[in-house]
C-alpha cells in the first residue's frame, strides 16, 4: 500500500509537470502526425498494407523516444534525483511512477495516431491495438530506465536513443508480427518481453538512481 501511494504521488507529480509545461504531449502528437504524413509519401502506391503497418510501428517507437528523451529532464535540471532518492520510499517507485506517466503520454499520442493511421492508410485489427498496448508497457519500462541512465552521464539525452533503440528491436518485431500474421504467437512474445524487461528494469533502477 505504501508502495502504491508513493508511486501515485510520483506519477501525479509527473502528470502535473506535463500539465504545466505542455511540452511533451503536444510534441509527441505533432511528431507522430508528421511522421505518418511523411510515410504516406515514403511508401509507393500499391505497396502492401504490411509495409504501412511497419511504418506505423516505426512511428510509435520514434514518438515514444521523443517522450522518453524528455522523461528525466526535470529531475536532471535541478539535481532532483538527489532529493528523491533520499526519501524513505523504495527507489523503484521513482521508476514506476515515471513509467506510468510515460505510458499515459504514449497512450494519448496513440489515441490520436491510430485513428489517423486508419484514416491515412488502412484499417487496424483489434490485435494490432492490443499489440500497441503491450508494446507501450515494454517501451515505457525500458525507455524510462535507459533515460535515467542517459541523464547520469555528460552526454545527457544524446545517448538515450543509442541506449534504447537496440533494446526496442524485439518490440518492433513483435509488433509487426502481431499486425501482419495470424495467431497469438507475437502477442505472447510481446507479453514475454514486457515481463522480462519490466522485472529487470524494476530491479535495476536502484543501482541507476544513486551510487550509494
Amino acid at each position: 500500500m505504501r508502495y502504491l501511494s508513493d508511486v501515485a504521488a510520483l506519477t501525479r507529480k509527473d502528470l502535473l509537470l506535463e500539465l504545466r509545461a505542455k511540452e511533451t504531449i503536444p510534441a509527441m502528437l505533432l511528431f507522430v502526425l508528421s511522421a505518418l504524413t511523411i510515410f504516406h509519401f515514403a511508401i509507393p502506391r500499391g505497396s502492401s498494407d504490411v509495409a504501412a503497418l511497419g511504418l506505423l510501428w516505426v512511428a510509435i517507437v520514434f514518438t515514444s523516444l521523443l517522450g522518453l528523451t524528455r522523461a528525466f529532464v526535470p529531475e536532471r535540471e535541478q539535481g532532483l534525483m538527489d532529493a528523491l532518492v533520499l526519501a524513505p520510499c523504495d527507489r523503484s517507485t521513482i521508476w514506476l511512477g515515471k513509467t506510468i506517466a510515460v505510458i499515459a503520454f504514449l497512450g494519448i499520442a496513440e489515441v490520436v495516431a491510430l485513428p489517423a493511421f486508419t484514416l491515412f492508410f488502412s484499417g487496424l485489427t483489434l490485435k494490432t491495438v492490443a499489440a500497441v498496448a503491450l508494446a507501450d508497457i515494454g517501451i515505457a519500462a525500458v525507455g524510462t530506465l535507459t533515460g535515467a541512465m542517459a541523464v547520469a552521464g555528460r552526454a545527457r539525452e544524446l545517448i538515450q536513443p543509442l541506449l534504447f533503440l537496440p533494446l526496442s528491436i524485439p518490440v518492433i518485431v513483435g509488433g509487426i508480427g502481431a499486425s501482419a500474421t495470424a495467431g497469438p504467437k507475437f502477442l505472447l512474445f510481446l507479453a514475454l518481453y514486457d515481463t522480462v524487461f519490466v522485472l529487470l528494469s524494476w530491479a535495476a533502477f536502484d543501482f541507476v538512481a544513486a551510487e550509494a
Partner: peptide
Amino acid sequence: NLSAVYALFGVVLIPVSFLAIRLS
C-alpha cells in the same frame, strides 16, 4: 553501476532478440 546494469540488459537481450529474429 550503470555499466553493470546495461551489461545485464545485454545478456537478457541476447535470447530475446534471438527469439525475435527467429519469429521475424
